[in-house]
């Protein structure tokens, strides 16, 4: 589904991304971990063609992201609040996102039903703009929007940060559900226990390089924790 080959990016002398080869299968749940500055967000931005690579190829479903725009139709993403139009009300925003994916108002609302538990009664039907919502609720809006139109690939940067504990569990169930429907997930997180629970494969980045590439098993969490403890020392 996703093919990364020899992807390189540096700012001046500082190398921020150098991935020789990384392939992610269709329907995988791919977890990305690493300390701040390891290159997680850079990798996601490159995947979404938000920054140009110095060298190398990134392709989603065999479409090279930097030369064609067709990958956008099968990709949903939420990296940060820079994806939200913050002066809209959540409903208005959802309708807009739905329209870009060719959905009518009703179809969009229908697709949002699965989020009713995550939203509680704080998002829909409020007279508030997105900019007036709390960080956690903004995050919920962004994540929900990335699911609209049922894309084949969903890319989420730190989806669990800022969410309250209940919402974190609801989100995990939602991701699991969609994963079963065949959606490919790319998720970065500092929360090691969440990623090891939901992801079948975990890649550890350090200074832009793939340091570990693990198939998740019961001992993965320990292995990751050990690694980060060692880096600290």
């Amino acid at each position: 589904m996703i093919h990364i080959h020899n992807a390189q990016k540096s700012y001046g002398e500082r190398e921020v991304l150098n991935i020789e080869s990384l392939d992610i299968d269709k329907g995988a749940c791919f977890g990305l971990v690493g300390n701040n500055g390891a290159g997680k967000t850079t990798l996601f931005r490159a995947l979404l063609d938000l920054i140009p690579l110095d060298a190398g190829i990134i392709a989603i479903n065999d479409i090279q992201v930097s030369t064609s725009e067709n990958w956008k139709e099968i990709t949903g993403a939420f990296l940060d609040e820079g994806f939200l139009i913050d002066y809209l009300k959540p409903e208005e925003y959802f309708v807009y996102v739905g329209k870009t994916r060719g959905l009518t108002r009703d179809q969009t609302n229908q697709q949002l039903e699965r989020f009713s538990e995550l939203f509680g009664d704080e998002i829909i039907g409020q007279k508030r703009f997105i900019r007036d919502l709390s960080k956690g609720n903004q995050k919920k809006v962004g994540i929900a929007a990335s699911f609209i139109g049922n894309p084949d690939v969903v890319i989420l940067d730190e989806p669990f940060a800022n969410l309250d504990p209940s919402s974190q569990f609801i989100l995990r169930e939602l991701i699991d559900e969609e994963h079963k429907n065949g959606v490919t997930f790319l998720i970065s997180s500092h929360d090691l226990s969440h990623v090891t629970e939901i992801c079948s494969r975990i890649v550890l980045l350090d200074r832009g390089k793939v340091v570990k590439d693990l198939k998740t098993n019961p001992s993965t969490l320990n292995e990751l924790e050990d690694h980060f403890r060692r880096i600290k020392q």
């Binding site: 979404l48 063609d49 725009e69 609040e81 994806f83 939200l84 996102v97």
Partner: peptide, 14 residues
């Protein structure tokens, strides 16, 4: 500018 990344990643033809 605040949500430019969002514009670029959506399936919205330039």
């Amino acid at each position: 500018a605040r949500y430019f990344d969002g514009i670029l990643t959506r399936p919205l033809q330039v």
